[in-house]
Design a protein around this nucleic acid. Structure first.
Lengths: 161, 161
DNA sequence: TTTTCTGCAAACGGTTTGCATCGCT
DNA sequence: AGCGATGCAAACCGTTTGCAGAAAA
């Protein structure tokens, strides 16, 4: 999928939810397309700092409002760390899980065959219907493993989530 | 495990991390033991409201400080919802995952055989070492399935976490 | 007596909201 | 022209922190 196609898709998603094609929304869509092309993940603040270079009047609220829509439409992925912070990236596929570095917080999508039936069975035993599931693998990337000087007690490691 | 034993364990955990056995800590340990016995999960605020009935001077900060310690010691579990809110409960076992109702947010521990090797392989391919993983099943409990009048768009459903 | 813990209140950081204005359509 | 979207600033909410006084050891 090319940059432009992604930008289009994002722009469309924003249009569908809201109605108007505005400068801020175009900016956001374009930037997200770039990030998608590079598989780069980001925090809201990262993105805001970025976008403000192109339009220093762009408000945080506007960005939050757009991200909200895109999450709803499942065009963005969000992962939550144990300290409550979030990072986002543009979805590439529909079925995937996340792998994140507990040190630098970079994250990537991974493909796994989970025993969905086993999950459904367990749910049924507890008299729940299975509606969805969330799996995140926490690891350490090669780069961070080599940086031996950094803290061994990263803030992003989930206590027991 | 009886109430008292759990209370003891919690009290000990608090002691180890901090040093002193104080009234607030005893209160917290006792209440958590009760909640554990009933497998009840709770939010920090729930717990604070509760505890204030017994000691109306107990401060929120104290509670946060104790919960922090217990999370560290892995005596408490926390799950995070898409809207960023948290719920806790006392751990029963070491290896388990969570199942939560996307409507009422009640949650329980479940046991699953995940393909850990597959996870490790996927990690290795991306040049990550696997350090941990988090799985949450989102479902709807029988009770909530029967309450047809409630919103069909619960705030707690994870966008794509 | 010493040291740690506590409650309070203020600070914090990320997010949301109210509102006057702007700018698509 | 009309209505939705925007930017701003203030509100919000869960959580953390600084501090003076209280209470374990």
């Amino acid at each position: 999928m090319s940059d432009t196609v992604i930008a289009q898709k994002i722009a469309t998603a924003l249009d569908q939810a809201g109605q108007r094609t505005t400068r801020p929304r175009r900016l956001i869509a374009d930037r997200l397309a770039e990030l998608a092309a590079r598989s780069t993940d980001f925090s809201i603040d990262d993105l805001w700092q970025d976008l403000r270079q192109q339009d220093h009047r762009l408000g945080r609220a506007t960005l939050y409002r757009s991200i909200e829509v895109l999450l709803q439409q499942r065009l963005l992925d969000r992962i939550t760390y144990a300290d409550g912070s979030h990072r986002y990236h543009v979805c590439r596929d529909n079925t995937h899980y996340h792998l994140t570095c507990i040190q630098c917080r970079r994250f990537v999508e991974v493909h796994l065959e989970l025993p969905i039936e086993q999950c459904a069975t367990v749910c049924a035993q507890t008299d729940f219907s299975l509606e969805g599931l969330s799996l995140t693998l926490f690891g350490r990337c090669a780069q961070c493993r080599n940086e031996l000087h950094v803290s061994m007690q990263p803030a992003s490691f989930p206590a027991s989530e």
